[in-house]
Design a protein around this nucleic acid. Structure first.
Length: 266
DNA sequence: TACTCATGAGCAA
DNA sequence: TGCTCCTGAGTAG
């Protein structure tokens, strides 16, 4: 479930289980074999997430950049080091350290790059609600970018240069919670409203990191809701709005499905 | 078994 | 805007 919260969870897992150790990295599928040799048996110094991108830094100063795209998925398991199970399906990259095994399937990006190249990628990314922001610098960057654009807020929230880590689910839910129509141009939104959207995304994504699922209904935050109950509008087209009862709308915005309540969000 | 869909994004035109 | 890439789950028949 690759929106930003998933990637931060993965970075935490890597730091907890693998950082400071040497990993055996292979590519059972073969497509990553050559690059894997550059970092296999090197010490992983640190894992870092920015938005939907994961950066794994090794002690030879090379960085493995991973982006899951829509399909990418991690599988973690504990194994017997003397009898490591065969990979199931298309495993692009496999990370093994003693008894801990992580398999990566279907990423859009899985490449070894230099520190300078990683820096370039990082510089392109917008502020990430999940990165610490004690001085509100990130918040200010977000507000500035939204308020400088005539593009609809629905599209801006999907732009990783505007805000890094938001995907189609959080986009729909953040706009619903803010009562904002997705079609509103960024530059016509009051500053306070943009600020509160940022703060809301910080809170929602923290829940995502903690629980591993995207729960956006406050009354369910401490529970373990079923998938169908977790959200206000995402994938609920044609069903009554949980607040006003109006049927939830769906439209295609820049090739992606957009869910919203035409009455609550205007 | 075949087809559709998905939480993403780069690129050409 | 449309095409392309990546993989697997769910569903129709």
């Amino acid at each position: 479930m690759p929106e930003g919260h998933t990637v931060h969870r993965t970075a935490n897992e890597f730091n907890k289980k693998f950082a400071g150790t040497r990993l055996v990295i292979t590519s059972p599928q073969g497509r990553f074999s050559e690059s894997a040799r550059l970092i296999s048996d090197r010490e992983l110094t640190r894992a870092k997430a920015i938005g939907k991108q994961l950066f794994l830094r090794f002690d030879n100063n090379l960085i493995l950049r991973i982006h899951l795209g829509i399909y990418g998925k991690w599988t973690w398991s504990n194994v017997n080091p003397d009898a490591v199970p065969d990979p199931v399906g298309q495993v692009r990259a496999r990370f093994l350290n003693g008894a801990v095994l992580a398999d990566l399937r279907g990423p859009t990006v899985c490449e070894v790059i230099s520190a300078a190249e990683a820096e370039l990628v990082e510089r392109r990314l917008g502020p990430d609600p999940l990165n610490p922001d004690p001085d509100f610098v990130e918040l200010a960057r977000f507000v500035e970018r939204v308020r400088a654009s005539r593009t609809s807020i629905g599209q801006l929230l999907m732009n990783q240069e505007v805000i890094a880590g938001i995907g189609n689910v959080y986009r729909a839910e953040i706009l619903f919670r803010a009562g904002i129509s997705p079609f509103t141009p960024g530059n016509s939104l009051p500053t306070e409203l943009v600020e509160s959207m940022w703060r809301d995304s910080v809170e929602l994504m923290k829940v995502g990191v903690k629980t591993g699922v995207m729960i956006t209904r406050d009354e369910l935050l401490t529970k373990k809701p079923k998938k169908a109950d977790r959200n206000f509008v995402y994938k609920r087209e044609g069903l009554p709005c949980r607040v006003c009862g109006t049927n939830i709308s769906i439209e295609i915005m820049a090739t992606r499905k957009l869910y919203f309540c035409s009455k609550c969000q205007n």
